[in-house]
Amino acid sequence: MENKASLYNGKLKYGEMKKRDIKEKIYRMLVFVGMMGLWHYLSIKLASPLLLPTPKDTITALIKSATDVDILVNLFITMKRVMKGFLVSLCVGIPLGYIMGLSELIEKMLSGIIDSVRQVPIMAWVPLTIIWLGIGDGPTIFMIAFSAIFPVILNTIQGVRSISKDYYNAARSMGAGPFSIFVHIIIPGSLPDVLTGARIAVGTGWMSVI
């Protein structure tokens, strides 16, 4: 019922929290420095800038391209596409997730299709989407939305399913109808999982940019 871990954390003194924070940061820094050291050592040993450039060269190149206007403009375009695809996946995925989460029949009807379509490698869609949507933003947005929609659907279903039966019964015994139950119980009760789905969706959407 209660989240024991968070209760316990709540009782930690402020000072202890701070100390733990600092410790964590130091460890993270150590890992980072260690990785850099290893990288540097290996690139010196290999002595081939083409196969493995040194970290210093890489970082210089990164800074150079990050300040390049062309690249920034392109980055902005990509971000816009990701956002569009992400929004499409939310607009389609969340309602679909709710319907499937609420109706076992519809879930059974659709899960077969969804699970098989999901397995198609994203690259296999490229020629098809170009034929369907032409060259331009269309195929890219489609593919971003396509890969982002599954975590949205699956997490929304999970969110709806995770709501305790007691909440439904409680609401009904207080006179709530289906609409009120949807607005006051199902939406807030599933929200944490829906947001998790959305967060994963941004990640997968970003990864499927081509």
Binding site: M1, S164, D166, Y167, N169, A170, S173, M174, H184, I185, P188, G189, L191
Partner: peptide
């Protein structure tokens, strides 16, 4: 009215 064993207060 119904009082549940685990109260079933809406946490949100």
């Amino acid at each position: 009215g119904f009082v549940f064993q685990n109260y079933a207060l809406f946490p949100w």
